[in-house]
Amino acid sequence: MDVLWLGLLGLLLTGWSVLDGANLGLGASLRRIGRSGPERRLLLTAIGPFLLGGEVWLVAAFGIMIGAFPGLEKDLLFAYYPVIVGLVVSWILRDIGIWFRSRRCSRAWQRGWETIVVLASTAMPFAWGLLLGNVVQGVPTNGRPGVETLIGPYSLLWGAVVVAVFTLHGAVFAALRLPPERRTRAAGTVHRAGAAALALLAVVGVATPAFSVDLARPLPAAVLGVVAVAAVVASTRLFAGERDRWAYVCTAVAAAAPVLAAGLATSPRLLDGIAASGTLDLLTVVVAPLVPVLIAVQAWMWWTFRHRVGVGSAVFF
């Protein structure tokens, strides 16, 4: 039962990393991939249908954490208070930036919100990575890690890894959604983000033993690290061969790898914070039967908006 709930939490966080990871990665490169106002609007139109349906996975993950892991929720949010505040603030600004950017014709207004989208879409994955990097170093109970851990080099490294893999993922997502002749706009970003992701993943591989980070279950984390590296390499190859869909699948694996690695490596600690069995039984009855429905609804959404943006796409953001 306990493992089932950790599995659901993992599923929701993986879903968020893959779906909103693409939105965030694209947001972070909004002004690089899009060279002009109209191009940026095209990119925001590409994100459009997936913004609400993507970010809601993280909302649901924290909801499940409150319901099924109240002890863990409390410990995480107390210990990593500044990181969480940073995560939420950048999340708010990313969303509002996307909603507000095209509400006025003024160039200055649009450029201002584009900059905010770029900064917030970079800061949010960074805060998320910082959180993961801290979690793998051990979640204190009713306490707080020192500044040297909270924003120490090892934690910062995780932040950078998440930014790099999300940026890569977002650039491939842009290539997949843009009209075919504009696909090449994303190539430079794919190339650079891919290289950065590889380098940073390698550094994490070396740094984890070097910083003598004590992982409860190091093997699955190591395997996921290798998978992530392989996925990044494969995605850049596939992208070069213009097989964007397969490249997206590979970057999705890379985007999901950090949270899965951190979660698996520390799963015994995470399970410490689980709710009483009565609450879990209840949630299993009320919530669990609906999970397939949620996934079916999301699949319907992806299917509806599977085409590249083009004439006739609804424009709002």
């Binding site: 609400l52 649901a60 319901g67």
Partner: peptide, 25 residues
């Protein structure tokens, strides 16, 4: 926590997904 978890997963998750589809559908 139980009703809040249910709210996010069973209600808000669907609401967000449906609203995104409505705006862009």
């Amino acid at each position: 926590g139980a009703p809040l978890a249910t709210e996010t997963l069973v209600a808000f998750f669907l609401e967000s997904t449906f609203l995104g589809m409505w705006i862009f559908g």
